[in-house]
Simulated assay, not measured.
Amino acid sequence: MAQIRLPAGYTARPLDPDADLPDLLDLLTACERDLHGPAAPAADPGELAAVLARPGFDPAVDTVLVHGPDGRLAAWAWSERRCECRVHPAHRGRRLGTGLLGWIEGRAVEQGAEKLVQVVADLDATGLAMLRTYGYRPKGASWLLGIALDDLPEPPPPPAGITIRPFRSGDPDDERAAHRVVEEAFADWKARRLPFEEWAQHAVHRETFAPERSPLAIADGDGETDGGTGGRVVGVALALDQPGSADGYVESLAVDRAHRNRGIARLLLQHTFRACRDAGLSHCTLWTHSGTGAIDLYLKVGMTVRYTSVVLEKTLPR
């Protein structure tokens, strides 16, 4: 089993999903607000639940919690084809991140991974410097974009043969159709295609999924239908609620290749923006990665960059 080196007085053990989640969410929230200010949203329990629901994920071997001399949670990490490491601001500068990085890489080698990807906020100069020191090299960037919802234009009419309607809450036909569209749209960019159950944990089965803010684009008369949708789903914008925040959030935006360059993605975004505004929210946000090539679309609809993160990659020893 991968080992971890810690400073004197610190202890490590695996996550107990039945007991540790409240403390872990507090740690994640503290890390985000240290970087982005007190207005940053609290950590989303649904995002953490999606990590723990990854097929084959075993908290007993794929997670580490580090507690400080006072018994409080100081850091955590997980590794299972992807990875994450967070150190509480009050415990930085004590080489906890270095120790956890060694554990992450050791665990990834045990799992047979050839490469590791880390995503670090560009404001985290210490984290970026550490990863570069240990052989990680920039691979791309990701951005959090936002838009104010107080002066939205009227959405244009949909293209011929396209109907826009909200996602039907709990409808398995809509869920399966959205999964197909999202996974096919990103097939060339993502390392692997997610099976439905794993994907759904990240999207439509999260407690914060907001179907009323999640429009679908339906193509009529093309000879194919998706169950009870009344046509074939060719575009989706899936939105999440962020409790305690004035921001709406777009988790996924995807359009079938055969229907791109028709203005469908922009139209779906505009419908989501208006639904967020109607829900009393003041802004809407989303993350995008440089590999998707979508940032120009978001800038054209009036979104601006809030935060930037650097995507780094390292080839692991065999």
Rank of each mutant, 00 (worst) to 15 (best):
A219L: 02
D226C: 10
D247A: 14
Q201A: 15
H259E: 04
R193S: 14
V204T: 15
P243D: 04
F209A: 08
T225F: 01
V250N: 01
R193W: 04
T229F: 05
I218Q: 03
L267D: 01
D222K: 05
W199D: 09
R232K: 15
L194A: 15
G228E: 11
N261H: 13
G244S: 10
S214C: 12
G227C: 08
G248Q: 03
E207Y: 06
G227A: 11
R257I: 01
V204Q: 14
G235Q: 06
S245T: 13
Q201G: 12
A265F: 01
D220K: 14
R193Y: 06
Q242F: 05
V233E: 05
F196K: 00
P243M: 02
N261A: 15
R193V: 15
R262N: 07
V255L: 02
A258L: 03
L267S: 03
H259C: 02
G248F: 01
R206G: 13
T208P: 00
L194C: 13
W199R: 02
A254L: 01
V204I: 14
D220P: 04
V233W: 05
L194D: 15
L194M: 14
E224K: 13
V236F: 02
V233C: 15
V250H: 01
Y249H: 13
Q242G: 03
G248K: 00
L238A: 11
E224I: 14
E198D: 14
G248P: 00
D241Y: 02
D241Q: 12
H202I: 06
S245I: 10
L216S: 10
T225K: 04
H205V: 11
P215D: 10
A246R: 05
G230I: 12
Q201R: 13
D247N: 14
R262M: 12
R260F: 00
P215A: 11
G263F: 01
P243K: 03
A258Y: 00
Q201I: 05
H259D: 02
A217R: 04
I218L: 15
A203P: 00
H205L: 12
W199H: 12
R257Y: 00
V250W: 01
A239Y: 03
I264R: 01
S245D: 12
Y249L: 07
R262H: 09
S252A: 15
R260P: 03
R213S: 08
D226W: 06
R260Q: 08
Q242I: 14
P215L: 08
G235I: 07
L253H: 04
V233D: 04
A210E: 10
D256Q: 02
H202T: 13
A203C: 13
S252E: 12
L268M: 07
Y249Q: 07
P211S: 10
H202V: 10
F196Y: 14
A265E: 01
